[in-house]
Design a protein around this nucleic acid. Structure first.
Length: 184
DNA sequence: CCCTGATTCGC
DNA sequence: GCGAATCAGG
């Protein structure tokens, strides 16, 4: 299906209403993907919708030579050994066997445990309180905040986090994983 | 692993 | 003009 006036109108409307590209794509029946929506949005030059003023001017983003276009059949060799080889190296089964409910319990206990006792008010000001010091965090510690920053018992998770990740396995989910994707 | 918009570029 | 692939980021 192509972009009829009606579809474009609906696109504009929904986009301005603040719906995400994927949501709009779902709204526009027909095999429309969120990429199609975004692409169209750009072409219509109505990208910045409710954007006051922000967003760094993405400058140094230049892809050297993208190996795109996987489709489109090519003439000669088809089932060559090389093709098969490239398809092989694709096994990354990362998983935490004994995680899950256990992790949840741990987190709960951790947060509860943090509410030990309130020190004297005077102590609140003194930085000596730093138990899990604010930035004694390394690149391998979870930076998930626990407790109220206003209270002395505030600290960070501190559990180990994977390379590059700001949070530990469990909190990473809390931060990024979609917990409830309900939409029309 | 989820999702968001942004950009590129073969078609 | 179109949009898949890819990037960059929460």
């Amino acid at each position: 299906m192509s972009w009829t006036d009606e579809r474009v109108a609906l696109l504009k409307k929904l986009w301005m209403e603040g719906l995400s590209a994927s949501q709009i794509a779902a709204e526009l029946s027909g095999g429309v993907t969120r990429n199609a929506v975004i692409g169209k949005v750009h072409r219509l030059k109505l990208s910045a919708r409710a954007k006051p003023a922000s967003v760094a001017p993405r400058a140094k983003t230049q892809r050297p030579s993208a190996p795109r276009r996987p489709s489109s059949s090519s003439g000669g060799a088809r089932g060559t050994a090389s093709a098969a080889a490239s398809a092989v190296s694709q096994r990354r089964t990362t998983m935490a066997p004994t995680m899950g409910a256990t992790a949840l319990k741990m987190d709960t206990e951790l947060e509860t445990e943090t509410v030990v006792e309130t020190n004297t008010k005077a102590e609140l000001f003194i930085p000596v309180e730093e138990r899990i010091s604010l930035l004694e965090l390394t690149e391998k510690t979870c930076k998930w905040p626990i407790g109220d920053p206003m209270n002395s018992e505030f600290h960070f998770c501190g559990r180990e986090s994977d390379e590059g990740k700001p949070y530990c396995e469990f909190h990473s989910r809390r931060a990024y994983h979609q917990i409830d994707r309900k939409k029309r």
